[in-house]
Nucleic acid binder design. Structure first.
Lengths: 337, 337
DNA sequence: GTTAGCACTCGACATGCCTAAGTGCTAACC
DNA sequence: GGTTAGCACTTAGGCATGTCGAGTGCTAAC
């Protein structure tokens, strides 16, 4: 029994199953792919593959379907990255033009990716570690509530309402604003926490408490804002591939709605040497995604922000991986220098 | 054949069908509801109701189910608003506490509403017509791209990237910023277009073009920003009531994803004397929502922003309407003075 | 206007049967 | 040893058939 042929058989099974979404048997296999052996031989190979936990039979006398482990092997060792079609290239190219706003670019990207892959696409907002403080604004909303706005020179705007704990007259707030702005303008966001300390220290004792509250708020803005938001598209594609989620797409929708879950998931996906990371079925930390796979990769200057696709375990990995990778590259190019 | 009893029969059919999601027949009807007549009489009434297009039979010998028109009559004339359970009241009360950010409040509201109704909840961002300009910031992103940020005294922050059409040195931009800010600070947002005209006019001719571009951008921010955003929750509930969407929930998900569609839909729903507006099945302008109903109402000072629920035509209207109304009231109270 | 009764229709379900697909195993083959 | 052919066995799925129950519409009587 030759080892390479066994892998070839697994590859054929995965490809056929992805294509037909039906268990694939030994005979159909030798017909569709011209392996030079008979179906009986394939049967032996398949039995071996089943022993290794790479494929499984839904019931006696049906064909085999790949297991999560089988997909994993397929993705890691067998599949070749499929080149994109010219039409797809063109669609991605079109993104380059007329790109204005960050929001705008991400929105179009995520829609495009959803359309290319016929699945749910997710894009995380880029992390702007090198950004510097451009402007700080405090707005008095109610006697004790202050809206803090932080504008970075990259164009990112973050806001948050802060409870300063005591009544603060308008003039006092204005004074604090000039103080903060004067000291912090141009500070890189990741250096903000330290700088904030000295600003607070420099405040007169009477203003110390509200200044402290504001500083905490700004710090939270600078750090937590990093990767907390995401945008997605193509949820309707889930419904089309309804069959692929035996139970229901409910849990998947829940996961998508709980953005925290998705963000954690994306962040946890370690960088892969081949550039695209895949998380298959039960490998996913979230139980609702036990029948889903996520294909993701980083983009942007240091590839910390993620872009990815979510679909059924039974997905066309080579094509999806190619699309994700291509989109990430173009995205990096657009957002780059 | 008595007219009031006919309505009573329609009511019973709607209620039973909503409860059991199965066509309801004459015999079951007289058993469950103690109407004082026999099933044969009910059959006559049902035949009449069918002639009027209020109910229909899926096939020859099944019970009847309400049509869109039947639901409409039910909602308009028959149903009584169901009081909320104490638990529900308590859940809504809890919203009042710890309410900080506008984003925060809306997020919690929409989740709560989704949970209360077991359906998809939608909340439109409130329209802030009385807001005034608090601050304007221009950030140079690239040689010709400027990020404009508009901060209102209500705490609303809007941003947009503007192409000024020509290279603009940093100093020139700073000069424009002081000019704009000086002239516009404190201007009500709805008076912004006029004020912008005079600001542009006051600019030296050399700066006229970029100033014009910036003014257009700000104007767009002030007007379009009004009600363009919404937040939603509970899409997973769609999957649970999968059966209720005979074809697929795909089109519904598409409609939800295309926020423009939903925003139009919500805006178009005229105010109803009873406080809650209902749009049933094919009454919806969007074809993908032909099997869905939307229950919505306004909230906030002038009730222009909408909060609502989307679910299958076969939904528990009285309860849903009560929940929407209650949530809208509490929301108004929180955001009010 | 209401009721009882009856013939009729139709979906849902069970049963039995058959076929196609596929497996595992054994014995022969190279 | 690896490969093949052949065969007995299993099972899902399609199909025809029969039965049952729910429900309707209609007519005649109350």
């Amino acid at each position: 029994m030759s080892e390479p042929r066994k892998l070839e058989v697994l590859r054929a099974i995965v490809e056929d199953y992805v294509h037909s979404r039906e268990p694939v048997g030994s005979k159909a296999l030798v017909e569709r792919h011209h392996l030079g052996v008979s179906s009986a031989t394939i049967r032996n190979d398949m039995a071996a593959l089943e022993d290794e936990g790479l494929i499984t039979a839904p019931h006696t006398s049906a064909g085999r379907i790949p297991t999560d482990k089988g997909y994993r092997l397929f993705v890691d060792q067998i599949s070749a990255v499929k080149p994109l079609s010219p039409a797809e290239r063109r669609a991605i190219q079109a993104l380059l033009e007329g790109s204005d706003d960050l929001d705008d670019v991400l929105d179009r990207t995520v829609r495009l990716l959803a359309q290319l892959t016929n699945q749910v696409a997710v894009v995380q907002y880029p992390h702007l570690s090198r950004a510097k403080v451009r402007h700080i604004e405090f707005v008095l909303l109610a006697p004790r509530k202050v809206l803090a706005v932080l504008i970075a020179d990259t164009g990112k705007v973050e806001q948050r309402v802060i409870d300063v704990g005591e009544d603060l007259p308008e003039e006092a707030l204005a004074e604090l604003r000039t103080r903060f702005l004067g000291a912090l303008s141009g500070t890189p966001l990741n250096a903000l926490p330290q700088s904030l300390l000295s600003v607070v220290a420099s405040c007169p004792p009477a203003r110390r408490n509200p200044a402290q509250a504001l500083a905490r708020g700004l710090e939270a803005l600078a750090t937590s804002s990093r990767e907390e938001r995401m945008v997605m598209a193509g949820t309707a594609n889930l419904a089309r591939s309804n069959v692929d989620f035996p139970l229901s797409i409910g849990p998947v929708l829940e996961a998508l709605e709980e953005q925290v879950v998705m963000l954690r998931l994306l962040s946890d996906m370690a960088a892969d040497p081949r550039g695209v990371t895949v998380s298959i079925g039960r490998e996913n930390p979230y139980v609702g995604l036990a029948e889903a796979s996520v294909v993701a990769t980083g983009y942007g200057p240091d590839a910390t922000a993620k872009v990815g696709v979510l679909g059924p375990t039974r997905m066309d990995y080579p094509t999806t991986m190619a699309a994700v990778r291509a989109v990430a590259r173009y995205l990096s190019r657009i957002l780059g220098p």
